[in-house]
Design a protein around this nucleic acid. Structure first.
Length: 568
RNA sequence: GCUCCUGUGGUGUAGUCCGGCUAAGCAUACUGCCCUCUCAAGGCAGUGAUCCCGGGUUCAAAUCCCGGCGGGAGCACCA
């Protein structure tokens, strides 16, 4: 037994020493021995002297001797263990296969953005992971803010993202249930109708003071509750939860449950005027929808106590509520408060401006949904607040679009180049270096445009490669450059220059979206526009096609004369 | 101010619940090489972390305990 143990210790010591310049340490070996043979834990005190001795012995040996002994006597230790990495999101607490229902509950009050993408992808991924269902539920309980077009916009966004839901519903369709629950909670004495004005309520909550309404009896509450449907004007009465005015959690200091709003609702028009607020609606809806796991961003964290409390009192089933950090990029705010003025003042072209983190903006910019999904999953399910780099999204995107992006020449600041002894009339160029994406034919007559910054570096006598064509020697420099063909064989060690035939160039504008805000200031240079010329083939591509302009970057065709820069 | 949450390389994370097989894994960024008729993609290698700080417990702490500090959020008749 002890011989076997000694063998194990020596093996581990040798391996560890050989990995660390021939020197190992006691604590590393103890850990590794315990790791391999957990049953030794109780005998650890007896084993330590053995380990110490072995460490001393092994450290005396040269690295070569260590390696040799290792190879001869412990070949099994040299097998490299694969490092395991979790792929995808972490497992869900309390989730049973086939028994998970999640929900994505946007308020239809604006266009979907990257934040919606994160939430909906997480919701869908978990539903998929456990063979469950995803419900899309429009949380439309504030008619002042919601509009019909946003319901549609959110669906379009999810569709584009590839997020599939099993059911769509509106919270506003459940108003009768919500009224019933409201009445129930009043009857149970856990809610009351408050007629104090807004300022008083706010002040009392801050100072932990109860008002006279809180002391009102059931009769008074029921009478007032009924009056909320006709007699009271908006702002005159609200239903408040009888929480705890002394609670450290300010949310629990008698929060509002329902209030009066006379605005016409996008779906139900004037049918209702008493509307639940977020906390009341979400608890009831999540519970009756059969949601098992509900996720929201962490600014709602303090409301979780209320969420569970309400369900407790109403004797309703409780989903598991969890929070994650919001997703936003540096200098690319997501809030309507910031974005709307930009659109209205014309600082951006609309909610689909490629500088914006809206789904439409990202789409126009050339970000593909699979990249967003991979990116979101790579962020994990954490509460730590961070601004992830846009670059990471770009990297995922680049790997996805690279195999299907047509390679085209583009020339900025064109300079004329004439090849005096051109002998070609047409050339065929592959659309992709590795994949078979077809070929395109280009007519040649020896008259080209080449990029200005390449032209600037050329001197008489230099040799350069016109990509896919031939090598030339520069014979004349000036406003126009002249060259002569030297050979057509590819040479890797001379400058490579792309070109566009002079007879028939396609003029395009390339929009380059940059960071929108720098230190909270609108970046006046957030949209760069470059004029360039490209190949005729550009006109044959569909709008939305991804192109890699050679030696420039990936762009998405936005129209016949405009492309948007995606990333390098 | 009060309360809650959070703190691992430049950046985003894995590991933390249940201390040990991690002298800290992956991705991104950067650098170099290979491949390549692109400054892309692909392949290989490298740089980069006293795991916020200080104590404590233990043979052993990123992980447990105590005390600090930094960052964020909430304190609406918005969601």
């Amino acid at each position: 037994m002890d011989d076997e143990l000694k063998r194990v210790i020596r093996g581990i010591a040798l391996l560890n020493a050989s990995e660390h310049d021939g020197k190992t340490r006691n604590d590393s070996i103890i850990s590794k021995v315990i790791g391999t043979k957990p049953e030794l834990r109780s005998r650890i005190k007896d084993i330590i002297p053995l380990i110490s001795q072995e460490v001393i012995d092994v450290n005396k040996l040269s690295v070569e001797t260590q390696k040799e002994e290792l190879a001869n006597k412990y070949p099994e230790l040299l097998v490299v263990k694969p490092k395991h990495e979790r792929i995808g999101l972490p497992p869900l607490e309390g989730a049973e296969q086939g028994n998970v229902i999640t929900r994505f509950p946007p308020e239809p009050n604006g266009y979907p953005h990257i934040g919606h993408a994160k939430a909906s992808i997480i919701d869908e991924e978990y539903a998929k992971m456990y063979g469950g269902k995803l419900i899309l539920r429009f949380d439309d309980t504030n008619p002042e803010k919601e509009r019909l077009e946003y319901y549609a916009a959110i669906k379009v966004g999810l569709d584009w993202l590839g997020v599939k839901y099993d059911l769509v519903k509106n919270t506003s369709d459940d108003m009768e249930i919500i009224y019933k629950k409201a009445r129930e909670i009043i009857d149970l004495g856990h809610a009351y109708v408050c007629t104090c004005d807004k300022e008083t309520i706010s002040k009392n909550r801050r100072e932990m003071l109860s008002c006279k309404c809180r002391a009102g009896d059931l009769n008074q509450n029921v009478t007032r509750w009924n009056k909320m449907f006709d007699k009271f004007k908006p702002g005159e009465a609200i239903v408040r939860f009888r929480g705890d005015m002394n609670s450290d959690n300010t949310v629990m200091r008698d929060p509002t449950l329902l209030r009066i709003i006379d605005e016409s609702h996008p779906i139900h028009k004037d049918k209702y005027r008493v509307w639940p607020n977020y906390d009341f609606a979400v608890s009831i809806e999540d519970s009756i929808d059969g949601i098992t796991h509900a996720f929201r961003t962490k600014e709602y964290e303090l409301r979780t106590e209320l969420y569970y409390k309400l369900l407790d009192i109403l004797g309703m089933r409780k989903p598991k509520m969890m929070e994650f950090s919001r997703l936003e990029f540096e200098g690319m705010p997501v809030s309507k408060r910031v974005l709307k003025p930009l659109v209205e003042e014309g600082k951006v072209s609309g909610f689909d401006d490629p500088r914006l983190p809206t789904l439409e903006g990202l789409r126009r910019r050339g970000i593909v949904p699979e990249a967003i999904r991979k990116f979101v999953i790579s962020l994990g399910f954490t509460k730590s607040d961070t601004l992830p780099p846009f670059e990471t999204l770009e990297s995922f995107n680049r790997k996805i679009i690279d195999p299907t992006s047509v390679r085209l020449f583009i020339v900025f600041e064109p300079v004329k180049l004439t090849v005096i002894n051109n002998n070609l009339t047409e050339i065929e160029i592959p659309n992709h270096p590795q994949n078979d994406m077809g070929k395109r034919k280009i007519k040649i007559d020896g008259n080209f445009f080449i990029p200005g910054n390449d032209a600037n570096t050329l001197k008489i006598g230099d040799e350069a490669r016109l990509l896919e064509l031939y090598n030339i020697k520069i014979t004349k420099i000036g406003s126009e450059i002249q060259g002569a063909i030297t050979s057509s064989n590819y040479k890797s060690d001379i400058p490579k220059i792309q070109w566009i035939p002079r007879n028939n160039p396609v003029n395009i504008e390339v929009l380059i979206p940059n960071i929108l805000f720098i230190n909270d200031q609108f970046n006046e240079n957030s949209l760069e526009v470059k004029q360039g010329i490209t190949e005729q083939y550009y006109l044959e591509l569909n709008v939305g096609a991804e192109i890699q302009f050679m030696r420039f970057g990936y762009c998405r065709k936005d129209s016949a004369n405009q492309a948007i820069y995606t990333h390098k």
